[in-house]
Amino acid sequence: MQVINETAPRSEVVAAFFSDADHGPMVMVNLLKFKDIATYPDGRDPELTGRDAYNRYGEAVRACVEAVGGHIVYHGPVTGMLLGQVEEQWDAVALAYYPSPQAMLQMVGLPEYQAIEIHRYAGLAGQLNIRTKAPAGMPA
């Protein structure tokens, strides 16, 4: 299996993902790989780690997720692997509940989200976003 970390989805993937009208509540699994040093377009914070830049995003994104009816289920560091092999292990995992793909789309359109996204790009070397169906009875 080939794994390719990316920081932004391709347009054809976005179109298919958000046009899935049958998909209700979901939990997004985010496998995160951080840059050693954050890279901001304006050169700010040249000593900041990628993890610290992403944490700026992570602290602020909670309010954006909640604004569209979602919540952060879990966020934490990857500390080891028991099964499987990858060339390079991810640094962290985050799980976010959304009432629908359309709610996530609404979130990324929020001005508050767009203002913090710079920290995400500054800190991430790449990530995998995996959509899963939220289990029945999961708190909204």
Results as ranks from 00 to 15, higher is better:
Thr39Cys: 03
Val78Cys: 04
Gly43Gln: 03
Ala134Phe: 12
Leu31Thr: 01
Asp22Cys: 00
Gln127Ile: 04
Glu117Gly: 10
Gly137Glu: 07
Ala125Asn: 02
Ala67Trp: 09
Pro101Thr: 06
Leu110Asn: 13
Pro101Asp: 03
Leu48Val: 01
Glu59Ala: 13
Ala125Gly: 06
His71Trp: 14
Thr79Cys: 01
Leu95Val: 03
Val65Lys: 09
Glu66Thr: 14
Gly69Cys: 12
Ile4His: 15
Arg131Phe: 09
Ala96Ile: 14
Leu110Cys: 09
Val61Arg: 00
Ala8Thr: 08
Pro41Met: 07
Gln102His: 08
Asp52Pro: 01
Asn55Thr: 12
Leu105Ile: 06
Val78Asp: 13
Leu31Val: 10
Asp36Trp: 11
Thr7Glu: 15
Ala21Val: 12
Ser100Tyr: 05
Ala122Trp: 09
Gln102Arg: 04
Ser100Val: 03
Gly84Thr: 10
Tyr98Gly: 06
Leu48Asn: 13
Ala122Asn: 07
Thr79Trp: 04
Val14Arg: 06
Gln89Thr: 12
Thr7Arg: 13
Asn30Tyr: 09
Ala15Ser: 15
Thr7His: 07
Asp52Asn: 02
Ala15Glu: 15
His75Lys: 00
Gly43Trp: 10
Val108Thr: 13
Ile130Ala: 09
Arg10Asp: 08
Gly50Pro: 02
Arg56Pro: 01
Gln89His: 06
Gln85Arg: 02
Tyr54Leu: 02
Asn5Gly: 10
Met28Ala: 15
Pro99Ile: 12
Met28Trp: 02
Leu110His: 11
Phe17Leu: 15
Ser19Thr: 11
Leu95Ser: 09
Pro25Glu: 03
Val14Ser: 13
Val65Asp: 06
Gly109Lys: 07
Ile4Trp: 10
Leu83Tyr: 00
Tyr54Asp: 12
Gly126Glu: 14
Pro111Leu: 04
Val27Asp: 00
Val93Tyr: 08
Ala16Tyr: 09
Asp45Glu: 15
